[in-house]
Design a protein around this nucleic acid. Structure first.
Length: 169
DNA sequence: CATTCGATCGGG
DNA sequence: CCGATCGAATGA
């Protein structure tokens, strides 16, 4: 089942992120379709989240986070790595879920390399027509670990929020 | 303008 | 531990 705007149009970003573990990213490259289980994500939740790109309000870079759910938000991190996020929540509520791991690949920069995507995919709707989309293949809930997010030591009281989710064993 | 500094990774 | 690498954000 395709997970689209109706699925991601939810303002409980941490719960959406939790529930993304065990779902699948599909990628169509020249007719060759592969899919990868989502194994690690982080939630970036609203204007108040001091770890989020949206914490200073709407800017050209983060505008997509304020838009409709079910779209991609992709940006260059440290001038080197493209990071893939899924926009969530109602229009006007800035939130996104960072994809940090798929299958055996860990690290958000490696995820986009494995999927062979970059900034040209920013702002695309996650659907087969974009050659990048999310599906639920089975409804058995996996074991999920909750941990603090990575690389956001500056986020003050939001630094230790357990908004990083990892597939458990 | 100038400067700082990241939602990282790989190599030594 | 550190350098790469560059654009967003900030402040003058």
């Amino acid at each position: 089942m395709l997970l689209d705007i109706n699925y991601f149009n939810n303002e409980d970003t941490p719960s959406l992120a939790y529930n993304l573990i065990g779902k699948f990213i599909f990628r169509n490259e020249n007719g060759q379709i592969n899919h990868y289980m989502i194994t690690e994500v982080e939630a970036y939740h609203g204007l108040l989240d001091k770890a989020s790109h949206a914490r200073f309000g709407k800017t050209p870079r983060n505008a997509i986070m304020f838009g409709k759910a079910g779209y991609s938000y992709i940006y260059l991190c440290y001038g080197v790595h493209w990071l893939l996020n899924i926009v969530t929540g109602a229009e006007g509520f800035p939130a996104a879920i960072l994809i940090r791991g798929i299958d055996k690949t860990f690290g958000p920069g490696r995820v986009t390399r494995k999927l062979n995507i970059n900034g040209s995919f920013n702002g695309k709707i996650l659907a087969p027509e974009s050659e990048l989309w999310i599906e639920e293949l089975d409804t058995i809930p996996p074991k999920v670990l909750e941990l603090p997010r990575v690389g956001i030591d500056y986020a003050e009281e939001y630094r230790d929020m357990p908004w990083r989710f990892i597939l458990g064993s």
